[in-house]
């Protein structure tokens, strides 16, 4: 999967970074990174600790503003936009730490995302009946991730794996064209990794996914394209087979007693 038959040309790439650089007080966490994510691909960013994966990710999602360089989303320059703006355009991120609304119910968690496009979010004078039409879609999304039975639990009551599934449902609620996932299996027990990987694979259907991931078996089974970062720069890019046999990558990982 992942390969699409989109027409060739500039439209081939859903997300592009050109000369992306981020400097924190003199330290360049990301240096001149060029990245092109093909439409419909599942593209991984990997690298040893401190390689600049998370900074790079935060730049792509507009959580951080780049020091230099441009970011193109479907050909449009989004370098100067904010997270909320790019989210409305269809570029939506997830978070490494479980990004739930713990005091809301599972259904409400998803409904918050659905409200994004519903135009009633500022209506403080109306009852919640005004957003009840969204419940049906929310339940659909929860069914897709296998949480329909937990819809009325408070989010804190969910297990870690289920929280991540709920987050994915929340992200999917925005019908993103590009999904950016920050270490979706981080801190997860073995029994949860497989279902979440499956879930991401299903969620990626018809979408482009950029994923930062530590778990290399997840990367190998999920991703079409892998960019390896080291010291804030692109070390190499290719398929898993290409990347995993690249001697530089092997050295980077083996000698990778990097600062974390």
């Amino acid at each position: 999967m992942g390969t699409t038959n989109a027409p060739a040309g500039a439209g081939d790439f859903a997300l592009e970074a050109r000369g992306l650089t981020k400097v924190f007080g003199g330290f360049a966490a990301v240096k001149d990174v060029n990245l092109a994510v093909r439409r419909g691909a599942i593209h991984a960013l990997i690298g040893p600790n401190g390689a600049g994966k998370t900074t790079c990710f935060n730049l792509l999602t507009k959580t951080l503003q780049p020091t230099a360089g441009t970011i193109l989303f479907e050909g449009e320059d989004i370098s100067a936009l904010r997270t909320a703006d790019v989210a409305r355009r269809g570029l939506v991120r997830s978070f490494q730490i479980s990004a739930t609304f713990p005091h809301l119910t599972v259904l409400e968690n998803v409904r918050v995302a659905l409200q994004s496009d519903y135009g009633r979010a500022y209506q403080f004078w109306r009852s919640l009946k005004a957003v009840e039409p969204l419940n049906k879609r929310a339940m659909q999304l929860l069914e897709e991730v296998g949480l329909a039975g937990s819809a009325h639990l408070t989010a804190t009551e969910l297990s870690y794996g289920k929280k991540r599934a709920m987050e994915i449902a929340t992200t999917l609620a925005l019908e993103p064209r590009v999904m950016l996932l920050d270490e979706p299996t981080a801190g997860m027990g073995h029994e949860d990794v497989e279902p979440i990987t499956d879930l991401i694979r299903r969620a990626a259907q018809g979408r482009t996914v950029v994923i930062v991931e530590h778990n290399l078996s997840v990367v190998s089974s999920l991703c079409d394209r892998i960019t390896v970062l080291q010291h804030g720069e692109v070390l190499t890019e290719g398929t898993y087979a290409e990347v995993s046999t690249n001697p530089d990558v092997v050295t980077a990982y083996m000698g990778g007693v990097d600062e974390s």
Binding site: T63, A87, R93, F101, H103, N109, F124, R126, A130
Partner: peptide, 25 residues
Amino acid sequence: RVVHSPFGEILKAIRDNEARVESLG
């Protein structure tokens, strides 16, 4: 009414996790 309104739902979400609300547009 304010607390149990569409607005109130977003407000509670912001209290719980502002960055996430922003990432949802």
